[in-house]
């Protein structure tokens, strides 16, 4: 593992039959504080690559390391704990209908840490207000409109200073209302040494944020083009 590396793909080749990624070797490195924009055409590919980085896709060769730990060498509890350090902005996230959205937002922090509930809810409230919500939504997810659910997904992803944030929902990055709080949150967690992988459908439409990102990759059926 290289020093300061958050995520490392070391000739990692996804299993042929699983996921929407081609079974080609992926080699890349995301350093602490990096913000990498990944251009990919299909949202399912972004989700599959996020799963790949989260150790959810079996490999036929190579290794995927997150925070220096190889996913394939970890037990299930260790993998869960490590995934608790990854924030994901995905519209099709885990929103159980029997729970209020505020519980789903705080679930990861409540499950993986011993932080007090007051502490977690105070941070969640601060992020919720930043992303344009009037407070922490206590309604079940089916009572929230799409925009508010995306805001809630952003709050959940950035809650608890995760080591890596994966913004896999194209709509989030393309929405002018969400961009300022999103950039604010990205800058904030980068200062703490976290990294961000930001998936976009068209990188040229995000040229304004060239200064923020420090890498542009292209994810296609042929694999990942870095640099």
């Amino acid at each position: 593992m290289l020093a300061g590396s958050v995520l490392e793909l070391d000739h990692a080749c996804p299993d042929t039959d699983i996921g929407n990624l081609m079974p080609v070797p992926f080699t890349a490195r995301v350093a602490s504080g990096d913000c990498i924009m990944i251009e990919c055409r299909r949202s399912v590919q972004a989700s599959a690559f996020s799963d790949f980085c989260s150790g959810m896709i079996p490999l036929s060769a190579g290794a995927v390391r997150f925070m220096g730990l190889d996913w394939s060498e970890l037990g299930s509890r260790q993998m869960d704990a490590l995934r608790g350090r990854i924030g994901r902005v995905a519209l099709s996230g885990y929103w159980p209908e029997q729970l209020g959205v505020q519980i789903s937002i705080m679930m990861r922090g409540l499950h993986h840490t011993t932080r007090s509930i007051d502490d977690i809810s105070a941070e969640a409230l601060r992020l919720a207000i930043r992303f344009g919500l009037p407070g922490l939504p206590i309604d079940p997810p089916y009572r929230l409109d799409r925009m508010d659910l995306i805001r809630a997904a952003c709050v959940r992803a950035f809650l608890g200073s995760p080591g890596l944030v994966l913004i896999e929902d194209f709509f989030t990055a393309a929405n002018p209302v969400l961009l300022p709080p999103l950039l604010h949150s990205i800058e904030e967690i980068r200062q703490h040494g976290s990294a961000v992988l930001w998936f976009v459908s068209n990188a040229s439409s995000h040229d304004d944020y060239r200064l923020i990102r420090n890498g542009l990759w292209h994810l296609s059926d042929d694999g990942l083009v870095t640099g």
Binding site: S50, D51, S54, M56, S76, R77, M79, D80, A81, L82, R83, G84, R85, I86, R88, A90, S92, G93, Y94, M107, R108, H111, H112
Partner: peptide
Amino acid sequence: RAMIAEGLD
């Protein structure tokens, strides 16, 4: 699957 991605078994 999204639940597993959050590290929730």
